[in-house]
């Protein structure tokens, strides 16, 4: 069906467009002018400008897929565009708002801080405009639900992220200021990436065939990680990042693992869940609780 639309009837003069309220534009006369006018009138120019700015802001790896999602979401947002039906209920509205907020949040990777921050603000606005209620603002319940959503979609095991949610959740009736919202979202996304990396690390250490790793090696890796995270504790200077980096460098990590593996005593295996949970705990310990 997409191909049908894109089929270009080469050479056929496009007929007159007298339908709907649009001014009928003859393609043969002053084609370029009228085409530009047409695009401006129906809003294509503005729409594409906004879309391209979003692309540039987010710099996605696959911009075309990004654009497809972008327009898809835009179509969902305006029910006037074909999505006719009865007005959605309150619950559905809430779901839509959450979906829209999530979509904004995912537009840019959190390492692109400016773009991410912009998107966080937009998402915050989306959620704040809650329906019929007079007072704008975001309540703790919506915020917590959004956090749970992000974690669920992030494919991190529930027990791994649960402590974080516990720490940064707000009470249901509390109003959530933008600052807290931003910090919460950022922490959540960073943790998900952290868990994904830890999971990749586990895969590297995994004994072939078994779904476990040697406990001593695993513990050595975790200890190194803890040491590196601890290095940033008191100092605020950039030097502490360097120190953390060097502690996690291949040399020192390999050394620690080597030392751990050298002790020939048999040790119990460590499963993925345990490793991830412990790694995440190191991270979560650094997170400041809300309130």
């Amino acid at each position: 069906m997409a191909a049908v639309e894109k089929r270009r009837p080469a050479g056929t003069p496009a007929g007159s467009f007298t339908d709907s309220g649009r001014p009928s534009v003859s393609r043969t006369a002053a084609a370029v002018e009228s085409e530009e006018d047409f695009l401006r009138q129906v809003g294509v120019t503005e729409m594409l400008r906004t879309a391209l700015l979003k692309v540039l802001e987010a710099r996605p790896e696959e911009p075309i897929a990004f654009l497809a999602h972008y327009f898809e979401n835009m179509g969902l947002r305006s029910p006037a565009n074909g999505g006719a039906g009865e007005p959605p209920g309150q619950l559905l509205l809430q779901q839509q708002r959450l979906g829209r907020a999530l979509w904004h949040l995912r537009l840019a990777h959190h390492s692109q801080r400016t773009a991410f921050n912009n998107n966080v603000s937009v998402a915050y606005e989306c959620l704040s405009k809650s329906g019929r209620r007079k007072k704008p603002g975001l309540d703790g319940r919506t915020y917590s639900e959004l956090l749970r959503h992000i974690c669920r979609d992030g494919q991190a095991p529930e027990e791994v992220v649960a402590p974080l949610l516990h720490k940064i959740q707000c009470r249901d009736h509390e109003a959530v200021p933008l600052g807290v919202f931003r910090a919460g979202m950022l922490t959540c996304f960073v943790l998900l990436e952290f868990v994904a990396r830890a999971s990749a690390l586990f895969q590297l250490l995994e004994a072939p065939g078994l779904a476990t790793i040697d406990r001593r090696v695993g513990q050595a890796v975790l200890d190194t990680l803890e040491g590196a995270l601890g290095a940033g504790d008191h100092a605020t200077t950039p030097a502490c990042y360097l120190e953390a980096g060097s502690r996690l460098g291949p040399d020192s990590l390999a050394l620690a693992m080597d030392r751990a593996a050298a002790g020939r005593r048999p040790s119990s295996p460590m499963a993925r869940e345990e490793f991830l949970e412990k790694a995440a705990a190191l991270f979560i310990a650094k997170v400041k609780p809300v309130g």
């Binding site: 997409a2 009837p9 339908d19 709907s20 654009l67 327009f71 898809e72 565009n81």
Partner: peptide, 22 residues
């Protein structure tokens, strides 16, 4: 521009969605 007639039925966002998806 080639398919202007269809646009009134489909809507522009849907057109772009389908284009980029394809």
């Amino acid at each position: 521009l080639e398919n202007r007639e269809d646009i009134s039925q489909y809507g522009i966002t849907r057109f772009f969605t389908e284009y980029f998806n394809s």
